[in-house]
Nucleic acid binder design. Sequence first.
RNA 1: GCCGAAGUAGCCAAGAUGGUCACGGCACUGGUCUGAAAAACCUGGGAUAUUGGUUCGAGUCCAAUCUUCGGCA
Length: 311
Amino acid sequence: MSKKILIISGPTATGKTDLAIKFAKKFNGVLISADSRQIYRDMDIGTGKDHPKSFKINLVDLITPDLSFSVAQYQKLALQKITEIHSQNKLPIIVGGTGQYIDSIVNPNKSTYSIRPNIFLRFFLNKLSTSTLQKIYRILDKKTFNSLNNSEKHNPHRLTRKIEIKLSTIKNIAPLPQGGVPEGRGGFNILHLSLTAPTSFLYPRIDSRVQKRLDTGLLDEIKNLLTKYSWSDPGLNTLAYKEFKDYFNKSAGTASLLKETQKIWAFDEHSYARRQITWFKKQKEIHFIDITELNHVDHTIDVVKKWYNLS
RNA sequence: GCCGAAGUAGCCAAGAUGGUCACGGCACUGGUCUGAAAAACCUGGGAUAUUGGUUCGAGUCCAAUCUUCGGCA
């Protein structure tokens, strides 16, 4: 019998967490978050940690907002957690909207995950223009450079990472053994459910959630964060926070500026949802669940039951 | 009712002296992604209020109509 993992993904505002909690209760499950922002402490309202406090979700509130975090770290922790949960004979349920994090569990053997970021190198590369980065990478690896698509070619983050990888292999820096990414770890038996909805349904939902978060005290939360951290800290480069930089910097934090900021924030959430939809759409072996369909919850429970009881 | 100003995509908006069927931004659409992923990028469609006139040629000039704003009543 293979080890089961239930995954519940989908764009923002589709009700992933509620559904996951439901399944956890029904199937003796333990939740693991796959959310790149809820790992930050002190960032609760903006990142939507609105599940009942009585219900434990793993891999939330791991670090402070001045620290950075990445897939590889997530992968290590999540796989550990999964092992632990399996050993208790329980069902790990991964919930979240960070597609890349979920992918690191579904397809754990990505070779470059073992190549660590080179802080020193990035410090310099971050100062260079995109075209300079292109030139550097073209010198290092002309063949791969030419095969890049337009999107990759203009993306400074990706170029920086490619240079980093190339340099580390040239210099033959042995990838540090990561531990926790066991090779041939035995395939999991994964059921991946992904919630979806047309954007016309999602956008109004997002908008009212934005309003709700403001009403619940987001501004106070940010004010409090700013006493300890600064806008350049990695955690603050997050939807629901970064949009407010101007608002808090300008002395005249007027009502009209607040309104404008709220609008921009909502639009950012829209395009975030779009990106998530694009990502999940191309993933293999996913059960999509349209939450605008009336019986989707019952239907979903049936699907999970069948999978859970088989094998 | 009179006088004045203005009408360029869903919104904002550029367009000396008329001359490539019109710059951008936002929104919206589709996509990229192997240690920043709620990040960072790529891509697409859509407009000169209406009608008529002047002209080889009009967003740009003229007239009428409609609409909006301001002032006077």
